[in-house]
Design a protein around this nucleic acid. Structure first.
Ligand code: ZN
Ligand code: ZN
Ligand code: ZN
Ligand code: ZN
Lengths: 132, 132
DNA sequence: TTATAAATGTTATATTATTACATAGTGTTA
DNA sequence: TAACACTATGTAATAATATAACATTTATAA
């Protein structure tokens, strides 16, 4: 179970927007969408994003500079993330695969270095785009 | 064996700089370092970087917006990259592990989606920083 | 209450990356 | 050689992403 966090006003506005969008959103697109709710400056967005990433409610898709709501609501893997990214339509989905996450965590342990986190991004064509 | 590419003048200047640095370099730091060689504009740097990434001579460390010379000179895994990143000193090294790359390539095949590429970034403390 | 940490508001600025357009070199082949 | 296609270069302007600095407010806890 994920620890319950009481989101602040801005954090809630921004999380709800990302979550409802169902996909990755970019910071300045978020900013544009929440200006009517009184959030006017980039920093307000980035601060909320930072916090949401920290507590695992959202993840950053590094290769896209975009943020997506965690799709594993019942788990706590904000430090072990894997995504599938379509290079054609830019659809992103979070991969939830126990074997994969165990394999990667074990791999981390085997190395000389102690890893505390990983992020994996797969690229390709989603089913829709493949069949076009 | 990797296909031999004849690098152009700018590509060679920029690859040599990154390669000799032994670590990740950021685009504007590269720009600063090559200005004495006549490369004056960001675009000249980004164009060379794009090409070098495309042919696998360098890789982009997505979480750091930085570029590193491929450390697997004898192979061709520009589409299957894995890195170990120290969160303290920002040291980066490329992971070359056959089992890992096979595992991830096979994982991709098992999914509904056909992956053509992946990038994995591990984070933690390197040996040096761990022992401090 | 008093102190502490967390969150917010605002302005300015830093950093990363691309668009647009003009020119020059390189290799292929008619 | 000439014509062509392709790749690379030069330059200016601008877009997109992210942070620094500082003042204030709100929530939490001792
Ligand atoms: Zn998640
Ligand atoms: Zn797609
Ligand atoms: Zn490599
Ligand atoms: Zn280190």
């Amino acid at each position: 179970m994920q620890k319950e966090h009481n989101l602040s006003k801005n954090q809630k506005i921004i999380f709800d927007l990302i979550d409802k969008s169902g996909g990755p959103m970019k910071a300045y697109s978020i900013l544009f969408n929440v200006q009517k709710k009184g959030i006017k400056a980039p920093l307000q967005v980035y601060r909320a994003l930072d916090k949401l990433v920290e507590i695992g409610k959202i993840h950053k898709i590094e290769s896209r500079n975009a943020f997506i709501a965690c799709q594993n609501s019942s788990c706590q893997i904000s430090k072990a993330t894997a995504f599938s990214i379509c290079e054609s339509c830019e659809d992103v989905s979070e991969i939830s695969n126990t074997k994969l996450s165990k394999y990667l965590s074990n791999f981390a342990d085997e190395s000389g270095m102690k890893y505390s986190k990983y992020n994996l991004e797969f690229f390709g064509l989603c089913k829709k785009c493949k069949s076009k």
